[in-house]
């Protein structure tokens, strides 16, 4: 490489580095970033789709060869849990879940989770073409993890419970106290608006109160972890979510099939 060419490389290298630094420092939250991400995801959806299907087949095949004893054990646990839940429904401790004919849970895969919005939102590979609508609840391991806040043809965005923008009314299953669960954007979730004279025990479970037409009451959310300092008006509690958001690769979207808005 001649000296002239070498100089050209250096100049262009400096330009590329500056450009990358500018993008790194200034592109967060801009329409340019969101647009580029959307385009890249949309284009890559075509070559990636067969791979995702293959992955589903592999995971499904893995499930088939799972040991019978493990499945039987899981079935026994579920049966016991089902009986327990049925008894609590009959006792009126939790409201029964609506069982509309067109209700179903749709499996979705996490396509993208931005480090800058790690505890705020995720993008999933299902969209309006799969029947997802704004406000549909998202679940993982049977626990609520968030709600759909943006729907496109082939993708959707789910706002997580750890986001400070999502406020979910919940009920404490053991005491029937009502409160609101919200996140702090750094991975913690808090239960707010409990009166000062109410004392909750560690481990008490929380499930959704009536949030909207799309989020049925009774969806498990998590458990009381510990009490936090009160601010004079109400006593907040830290909540341990039932689902593990640090290992969130797949989730379920609860489709209600109704046409109303959230």
């Amino acid at each position: 490489m001649s000296e002239t060419e070498s100089r050209k490389v250096r100049i262009q290298g400096v330009i590329a580095v500056i450009l990358a630094l500018l993008l790194l420092g200034g592109s967060a939250g801009t329409p340019f970033k969101a647009g580029l991400e959307r385009i890249v995801l949309a284009v890559l959806d075509y070559p990636e789709r067969p791979i995702r299907l293959l992955l589903d087949v592999i995971i499904g095949a893995g499930g088939w060869v799972e040991e019978r004893a493990t499945l039987l054990e899981a079935m026994a646990t579920l049966r016991e849990e089902n009986l327990h839940l049925r008894r609590r429904v009959e006792e009126g401790k939790i409201p029964p879940l609506p069982t509309e004919k067109d209700e179903k849970a749709l499996m979705a895969r996490v396509l993208f989770r931005s480090p800058r919005a790690w505890w705020k939102e995720i993008r999933i590979d299902r969209g309006s073409r799969d029947g997802i609508r704004l406000g549909d609840p998202a679940l993982s391991d049977g626990f609520l993890i968030g709600r759909v806040t943006q729907v496109e043809h082939g993708f959707s965005t789910v706002e997580l419970l750890t986001s400070s923008g999502l406020l979910v009314p919940v009920v404490v299953d053991q005491t029937r106290d009502l409160g609101v669960v919200t996140g702090d954007e750094v991975g913690q979730v808090h239960l707010l608006y409990l009166p000062l004279d109410r004392r909750l025990e560690k481990g008490m479970s929380l499930s959704t109160a009536l949030v909207s037409e799309r989020v049925p009451p009774g969806l498990p959310v998590g458990f009381i972890a510990d009490e936090e300092p009160d601010d004079g008006a109400f006593r907040p509690y830290r909540v341990r979510l039932g689902a593990d958001l640090t290992r969130l690769y797949r989730l379920q979207i609860w489709l209600s099939g109704e046409d109303d808005q959230p």
């Binding site: 990358a20 480090p115 919005a117």
Partner: peptide, 17 residues
């Protein structure tokens, strides 16, 4: 790098750099 960031890291410009 930019495309990788748009697809995977979310830190636009990081892999490019």
């Amino acid at each position: 790098g930019l495309l990788w960031d748009a697809r995977w890291t979310g830190l636009l410009g990081f892999s490019a750099l």
